[in-house]
Design a binder for these strands. Sequence first.
DNA 1: CTAAGATAGACAATGTCGTTGTCCATATAG
DNA 2: CTATATGGACAACGACATTGTCTATCTTAG
Lengths: 151, 151
Amino acid sequence: MSNGFELPLRLLMAFRVLIDALHEELAERGHPDMRPMHGFVLQAVARGADSAASLGRTLGVSKQAAGKTIETLEGLGYVTRVPDPADSRRKTVVLTGRGTDALRQSAEVFDELRARWAAELGAGRLDDLEDTLRRMTPGDLFRLDVPGWFG
Amino acid sequence: MSNGFELPLRLLMAFRVLIDALHEELAERGHPDMRPMHGFVLQAVARGADSAASLGRTLGVSKQAAGKTIETLEGLGYVTRVPDPADSRRKTVVLTGRGTDALRQSAEVFDELRARWAAELGAGRLDDLEDTLRRMTPGDLFRLDVPGWFG
DNA sequence: CTAAGATAGACAATGTCGTTGTCCATATAG
DNA sequence: CTATATGGACAACGACATTGTCTATCTTAG
């Protein structure tokens, strides 16, 4: 195999390793129905994408698709929609207690996973890894338009 | 933002950076209709997943889904199906000239991208990155069952 | 103030891509 | 030879995205 092939695959697998571990752990902590996508969406909502239209823009999908995703999350109990008093067209998307819990738990698990990596690699090597990745990736971390990108 | 959140996102973005650059370059080299998925499938075919059923197993999807993917790739001219003389149920999937060209070009571009990273980071840091990733990811690189995994 | 345009969200039709179930032809094992 | 497993095609369905259209509402220009 050529050299260059390995790097992207390792990056993807490392991501998968973390995300799979996250969701295994989340399932045991009361969030068995969370999917990788949902974490992204909840993050986006928490960061201000609090309507179908703005969520769609943040995620790089149509507002209709964003609306359906919100419906799904609403069905799972992670968000609610409340009418916006200042603009009666809008329905503001709000994280429920369960939603904020999911985010808090995700953060905890990610911190634990990072600690596990630090223990295995040594803190220095992990810091180096993060520094290197920071140098090779765009600064704005939250371009979350991942959904259909791969197909 | 908590510390642990950053690592997985950076890993994913680094992967995206490479894959986007690859396909931008591939488009200019005569493969504008290649999608990220297609590279994975062609790889799998080249590595011996030469029937709908075995491709499905390798990719972690049903044989029907694999069959449709093969049809698509066939329509794009990357593979052909030839009857297997030893087993008249099977139709062996074979890379066309265009298919092998796509793989060769991908390898070239990945090598160039890796060289670009080496130039920017220094060869030592890039080697460190790859070593670190190798330590944290499974050995068998070609578990390519990526398709629906994210949903 | 009013008219024009932009925006939020709902609804419908459609496309893509995965799934399961069924079926037939063919290999393979007992 | 017979029973079972396998490869591939076809059909029905579901998840999830798309575009287009519609109404209600907000915002801006004149």
